[in-house]
């Protein structure tokens, strides 16, 4: 990928901008890693598993994809540490925090499952498929939120309201999450069409939509933040 950040821009940039630019650069690399993990989850398993393809063994792919994206997100969170807010660092605090995160993740899976059923997914049959869709959507949206914000529902709501973001990381989180939602929303569109294609099966078009949305969000958010870096003013800056 061609990144428009060149050496000259460093020279012109003020001190604050340099800070921002390094942040943006960091953001870009983390996002590239996420995209890379998704691509790997498509190609690597075919070496180990027979008859592996996205459409036919869809659930397997979903599991692998969700696990790899989660892993990459966790590792990146531990390495990059975008928010330096955690004051206490006792082990018990960390453990409770982790458990809380797990509970939040599971809740979000069930929550998404309920929403899909409300949107018209079959109630009993194909429940596994619906749930795996919920899992993958939670992977794309809840896990980055958990990594960045921790189990704090009010903070989440704040990010998704207008003018609520306080850093580049939160801004990119907002963009990727919204684009995942939009992707899964748009992914439902081809279902009623009578083309009879294999990818129109429930929930393949939706998972693909969510994945494309997530990837698009990952690509767009550093670019968007870069283009708008002059306008973006965060409260804590």
């Amino acid at each position: 990928m061609d990144w428009p950040l060149s050496d000259t821009s460093f020279c012109i940039a003020t001190q604050e901008n340099t800070m921002k630019d390094t942040d943006i650069k960091k953001l870009l690399y983390t996002h590239l890693l996420c995209i890379f993990s998704i691509i790997l989850s498509i190609f690597i398993p075919s070496f180990f598993l027979e008859n592996f393809s996205i459409l036919e063994t869809h659930l397997t792919w979903l599991c692998i994809c969700s696990v790899s994206v989660t892993a990459v997100n966790l590792v990146l969170y531990l390495v990059v540490k975008p928010n330096v807010s955690s004051k206490r660092s006792s082990l018990s605090y960390k453990v409770t925090r982790f458990l809380k995160c797990c509970i939040y993740f599971l809740t979000s899976c069930f929550f998404f499952h309920v929403i899909f059923v409300l949107y018209g997914a079959p109630l009993i049959e194909l429940a596994l498929e619906t749930f795996s869709l919920a899992v993958i959507l939670s992977t794309f949206t809840t896990i980055p939120c958990l990594c960045l914000l921790g189990p704090n529902f009010k903070a989440w709501l704040r990010i998704f309201s207008r003018n609520g973001v306080t850093s580049i990381w939160e801004n990119s989180l907002q963009i990727t999450t919204i684009s995942s939602f939009v992707g899964i929303w748009l992914g439902a569109f081809p279902i009623p069409l009578d083309w009879g294609r294999p990818w129109q099966e429930w929930p393949i078009s939706c998972t693909l939509g969510a994945t494309f949305g997530y990837v698009a969000g990952l690509v767009i958010s550093p670019l968007w933040i870069y283009w708008n870096r002059k306008k973006l003013t965060y409260k804590n800056n």
Partner: peptide
């Protein structure tokens, strides 16, 4: 939820 919880 935004209005109720955050007073947006």
């Amino acid at each position: 939820y935004r209005k109720c919880l955050l007073g947006d």
